[in-house]
Design a protein around this nucleic acid. Sequence first.
DNA 1: ATTAGCACTCAACCTATCAGAGTGCTAATA
DNA 2: TATTAGCACTCTGATAGGTTGAGTGCTAAT
Lengths: 342, 342
Amino acid sequence: MQLDERKMKILQAIIRTYMETGEPVGSRTISKYSDLNLSSATIRNEMSDLEEMGYIIQPHTSAGRIPSDKGYRLYVDTMMLEKDREVAEMKELMLEKTEKMEKILMQVAKLLANNTNYAAMISSPQIRKNRLKFIQLSQVDTLHILAVIVCEGNIVKNKVIETEDELDNEDILKLNILLNTNLNGLAMEEINLATIARLKEQAGIHSQLLNDVMDAVAEAIVGDEDLEIYTSGATNIFKYPELSDSSKAKEILATFEEKQQLVELVNSTMEQNSETGIQVYIGEETPIQTMKDCSVVTATYELEEGVQGTIGIIGPKRMDYEKVVANLKTLMNKLDDVFKKK
Amino acid sequence: MQLDERKMKILQAIIRTYMETGEPVGSRTISKYSDLNLSSATIRNEMSDLEEMGYIIQPHTSAGRIPSDKGYRLYVDTMMLEKDREVAEMKELMLEKTEKMEKILMQVAKLLANNTNYAAMISSPQIRKNRLKFIQLSQVDTLHILAVIVCEGNIVKNKVIETEDELDNEDILKLNILLNTNLNGLAMEEINLATIARLKEQAGIHSQLLNDVMDAVAEAIVGDEDLEIYTSGATNIFKYPELSDSSKAKEILATFEEKQQLVELVNSTMEQNSETGIQVYIGEETPIQTMKDCSVVTATYELEEGVQGTIGIIGPKRMDYEKVVANLKTLMNKLDDVFKKK
DNA sequence: ATTAGCACTCAACCTATCAGAGTGCTAATA
DNA sequence: TATTAGCACTCTGATAGGTTGAGTGCTAAT
């Protein structure tokens, strides 16, 4: 069977109506409130076809139809792409001051949740291919050394290291010079065993300390650990009856609380970089199993080359995809402004 | 009217039973399942008295009784205190490595939530009366200075400062010495205008930079900003029908998501330091308005003199108070072990 | 002071009924 | 041949009535 223009229009009308109401939509509704000028009987025939083709589903005999995952998918793929070719002129931002950053990210999540009435999440930007800018060791007291590591993009990490043998200022100065001359500008994959061995040799007796420092450096550069995720509006799911029965709601909210699973969402989003940066997962397509009754829209934002994070919207399958995508786009621009202003 | 021994026992039985079942409890139940050997009629008379005195409530005629806030309060005050005099031998812990810290705190929250089946929260330790240990400025690039501030207890903060005029290494060295000789060992309240004025004078042209640094220092010492709160098991509230109707659940969960209100809970807990460190808020007593249908049990933990945080359990009013308090106590000991081991 | 007994109340549950929305099918129509 | 009108049928959801069981308050007997 062919999915001709008319069927397409009817499908579209069904999805639109269903989004508004959340109720199964019947033939008569479409017949009356669309500009197709067809009788409900005709619509019924077409709907019957659409159902056979798998685009819509009847929850039970004598109920209206609701879109299937396949139907939503079609909707998103086609209806969306029309609007979408107005490409992305993207950001070029500064990031420093992680504390402020946190606040902005939380603000963004909140704003998004309020605007869309869905649940929102945003991940802190991740640095890919990060390079070391400089290292600074300083003595805190006789037994503790503070290592401050600054990477490209002014990402700062610190680590307090407990030392076994006491060090004097001179030792530390030497180590500082040693580390900086040997490691500056290197990315993680370039710091290999040979480099480290050479360092150790030159460091002499302080090789234990050096080990700890290297650990800290590795962590700072790879930096997978401190992927922070901020969420907002998780309770918005109560606005959608199809999600708010207690067991479903519980699962979804627990996922939001246990941010671990959201991290996976972020990772899977990062891997597939689509052209527009926006991805839509419908129902079972989602990488998070517990969200199989929802749809998830994610976008990747980029502050500067190689520094990027993920924004996501989680809502019911009858989510207003156009609105969400529009929101995500304008939001990215706003984000841009905020960072540029500083 | 007097609250004699027997009334007390009946009240206790009512509360215990209500905790288990969550249903209003009737006279017959008490008559059968308590060791009082009284007929239901007698119980009914006593219950009538108890209701008049305000310890129990009848949701509607011909339903059983449930404990009122006042009843719970009595229960907690008396029943609890018996068990409670086995004081608190407390902690003496190290803290460094805030990242590890985070993980431990999250773990604790999780454990507590799992153990009790209520919602749990824990705040990161706050430092009261903090003193500056040392400051280190270093040049990141021509326009950025990194200020690293270490406080007593090895709390590290850093701030990247944008400079207007270019600085050379010598300038920075001077500033470093200046700051350290003048500020070391001082607490916030000791850094007054006079000190700052003197510093500015000596800093000469770099007074703008000095301003920024002082801001950073102030923030590091006061450090009210980075009160982190970790939660777990928020969705446990669905286990209690009296809380899980959608509007109430929504409110409570939103409070958990918006950690702001929990901060207030932490603050109010910190202010009133009871002897045992454990406080119980029942119903309307709670500092968080949205939790008026719940009970909140908070405890203050202390890592070392002046470094303390808050743990809290949020559950239904029919929470098993004894269990919760016991849990909090053993948990504190566990926390102790964890930190001591390191 | 305690208890047994009785009448009464109320929420919860079950059942039946009914209206409304929706469908599928068939026959009439353009 | 495509569309439409009409009709019988199905299913959900709301409403109303009836029943049950748990619980109470009161009174009279112990």
